[in-house]
Design a protein around this nucleic acid. Structure first.
Lengths: 336, 336
DNA sequence: AACCTCCATTGAACCGTTTCAATCATGATT
DNA sequence: AATCATGATTGAAACGGTTCAATGGAGGTT
């Protein structure tokens, strides 16, 4: 028994193939009576349109590609979840790839996605200090629909939706200063990368506006923006630096910082205030609930998808970095 | 300027479209000289095969669908990551959907995936007590390639790759008994669901084999297999039940259990031993590192993908539940 | 020189939709 | 009764690959 095609339906319903097709697409040109008749046959035969033929005809796969650095940091899992829900509402599918923060891997994934015919791409840029962006640049020059999420590549401030982390960082730092903390530091990755430079910028601005001297030594460059990274950073700098306020670049790292401080017998927040960024769901349920800057995940995903679909629809979307407001979430890991 | 098609390449190379196609597919029937010539033109024109036409011709999208309950529990994020890597090695893409533990949503996602023409499905069953499985049953009867991962639906013990959680549970319980714990309980979801019944089974067997009486009150049925769920369960049963050993059904819940116990001033593991399941990456980096049963995520994903591709290739894969060995990971949350 | 083999290449059928100009049917208008 | 307008339906082209039977050509054998 062969596959049931639109022809079989047409034959059995006594209409042309075109009529069946238009019925399935709910075209207003087909009379209700005919539609009803055709749909009955469709039902009876259990007919289902061939997705390959359909994509071929339409030149669209109604699917988009999503690239994230990975799911070790649950923040990205939460983004993936929100993104999937948003894309699904538009009756599209989401394919995903994991870059492991390597721009090279990212390029490979993009290539794969293009070979699969995705209609557009949503990319969380890899935190890669020396990214090779030739491929992305080529796609941008061809105006292939592509939106950067949560950050962007410094050279390419196009079509981006992210959180206003600079403001979040600023506000958080101000609150640390107001709480009377004197020796505040930030533990971050390379300032060459947007996710870090934004946070550093806000951090610095807080001192400037309060009129406090800013010393570069407040900025601790570390690598490994993970629990282990935070743990190791404390080992390396705490005894010498003796901070009473620590901003870690994300919640996972902040948790590592707290873990190491506690194991050294330091009290939080009495001795040291700690805060992170992202507000991942475990941040609030730690033994010491974490003060953090909450990224508006849902709104960001919705805005990114909106932007992407506008581009796919051929609208002329101006290249812009859209920064959504954040919320500073005070919890027990910092003094007020 | 129109799209560059295989015809353009053929014309410029002075060969037929068939030759170009076979060259691109690296057919041994084409001479090396011709291939080289054709590839040069391909390069020059920047030609790229149309993925839609290709899928259409081949009746394959080289993509598979993956359904997970969500990423709130990072365990699923880790599975997704491993799965993606495995699928990518096979030059296929992974689409994903999130069921939120609703079989209804799962069915909807499956439908969507079928409409997109995925070659197969990998499903982490929803923890839904009254699932409507008609659609899945239909697909199974059509022998559509489909593999269940980490668990299966009780009525449908087909094509499954999971961890041997019963053994893990057994071993863990034995170690609790050996450590001299007297009042051991397990906090679990509905025993109607495989992920829970497996763990309960192993738990029970440990008592049986040691010759200890087993009392049903050792099994605490709870809902919400999350941090909050664990927290709430302790609130509800601890004072009355006074356990000295607690198995939580997964690591997130175990963390909730620990969180609540500590806030009550109970010492872990001195007063109470706690263990979880999954060995998610944060389990080891908690303030009190968690004793847990590690699921072999990578091997499970590899086995599942292998199975699925065999099915897609038309091989006759016997329906079977494959259980991979687990490893009990002892850490500080339990006495030895 | 005629015949045979073998390998490389060709060319056309095929896949299952969508789309749209052309046709047909119906009822209204003169 | 002839003409027109409107709306429903048809039929065939188009999409861009893959595949394979048929063809062509070069080299070897008799």
């Amino acid at each position: 028994m062969g596959k049931i095609t639109i022809k079989d339906v047409a034959a059995m319903a006594g209409v042309s193939v075109g009529t069946v097709s238009m019925t399935l697409n709910n075209s207003p040109k087909i009379s209700e009576a005919t539609k009803k008749n055709v749909m009955e046959i469709v039902e009876k035969l259990g007919y289902r349109r061939d997705p390959y033929a359909r994509s071929f005809s339409l030149s669209s796969s109604r699917s988009i590609g999503f690239i994230a650095p990975g799911f070790v940091n649950p923040f990205f899992g939460e983004v993936a979840e929100a993104l999937q829900a948003t894309v699904e509402e538009k009756n599209n599918s989401l394919m995903f790839g994991i870059s492991n923060d390597s721009a090279k891997q990212e390029a490979k994934l993009i290539d794969q996605f293009l070979d699969r015919g995705v209609d557009g791409l949503i990319i969380i840029p890899a935190e890669d200090v020396h990214p090779d962006l030739t491929q992305i640049k080529r796609l941008l020059s061809e105006s292939f629909p592509m939106v950067f999420l949560t950050s962007y590549y410094k050279e390419l401030p196009y079509h981006t939706v992210m959180a206003d982390l600079a403001s979040g960082s600023y506000e958080l730092t101000r609150s640390f200063i107001s709480a009377g903390l004197k020796n505040i530091i930030i533990i971050t990755g390379s300032p060459d990368l947007i996710p870090f430079s934004e946070r550093i910028y806000g951090f610095r601005r807080a001192f400037d506006e309060v009129g406090l001297p800013f010393d570069e030594s407040r900025v601790i460059i570390s690598d490994g923006m993970s629990y282990e990274g935070g743990y190791a950073a404390i080992d390396r700098i705490f005894d010498e630096r003796k901070p009473d306020g620590i901003l870690a670049i994300n919640d996972m790292m902040a948790m590592g910082v707290i873990g190491r401080l506690k194991s050294k017998g330091i009290r939080i927040p009495e001795d040291v205030s700690v805060a992170g960024f992202d507000d991942i769901s475990i941040a609030s349920i730690q033994e010491t609930p974490l003060t953090t800057v909450a990224q508006p995940i849902r709104p960001m995903c919705m805005a990114a998808v909106e932007k992407l679909f506008d581009m796919i629809a051929g609208k002329d979307v101006p290249a812009a970095v859209e920064k959504l407001p954040v919320r500073v979430q005070h919890r027990n890991s910092s003094r007020m």
